[in-house]
Amino acid sequence: MFMSLKRKWTGKKVDAQAIPVPTNPIDEILGINLRNSLIAKYNPRVAIERARDKVAAKVALEAAGISCTRTIAVIEDYGTLMRYKPSKEFPDAWAIKPARGSQGDGILLAVRREGDVWYKGSGTPLTEEDVINHLRKVVDGHFSGDAEPQDAALIEPLIVADPGLANLVPEGLPDLRVICLHDQPLMGMVRLPTNQSDGKANLHQGAIGAGVSLETGRITNALQKGKPITHHPDTGSRLVGFEIPKWDEVLYMASKCGPAVGLGYSGADIVLDENDGPLVLEVNAHPGIEIQNINLLGLKAQMHHAGEDFR
């Protein structure tokens, strides 16, 4: 702590390569304090705002030539909402997302349609009124953290997962998370929904986090709620050793995401679509550090290899 202060004041530069890679396992781990300081160092405020707003992030990603999910509509205010008729404009399967939502809050999915009624994955019917109500909640900023009084609702067609990955899970969309420093991928994982997580790829709710080796694209280690597992508890398919399809493409895509949005330290959420291949869902400016436990690797050590000097 004092050494770093001293260096700052004396202005002495240390060669990044001269700092030895830590061999002490505690030093390999990236704590939340260090993560926050890295974010303060590499992620400018503007870029964080851009990444948080899914609509703005999508524009930036598309401009960089990275394929994202298609957009059906963006509803930004009550006026548009009042004129909007879901029964006319929605396809059979869609997803409503709050543009500034976090951790999957406020995401509504419909998988099929009968007349003017859609059905969720769980079979719950959604009438047009339910949909409008949800849209109103989203536009009202109900899912968008503390600072936002208003939000935009983003409507997208539902992504159909790549059969290779879809066969692993009972329902829901598995998504891949790759953490990058600038354009170097550091660590990757795949989040697999379970029945316990209700089809959501949210680790807190009981989804499986499986660490993926960057070199081989194979799952090395899988955790569900902190307990190591080797097979999916619902489908029984073997996870450890499973090779993620199109992993090279995913890595290439993830390495371009951070720079495209303007983030130095980023976590790209990528899904594998049945037809379109890898698509970027969103780019996180504050990627979580639980991925270290899932991969049984320390992010700090990976950053050392990538040439980060932590000053």
Binding site: M1, L5, I26, I29, G31, L34, S37, N293, L297, G298
Partner: peptide
């Protein structure tokens, strides 16, 4: 000011990431 510059692991994180260093050892 001094405490705010603390970049190391939090005490709770030592327990949280125990699987990693136990595996290493």
């Amino acid at each position: 000011g001094i405490l705010g510059r603390y970049r190391g692991l939090r005490l709770s994180e030592i327990g949280r990431f125990a699987p990693i260093w136990l595996e290493r050892r």
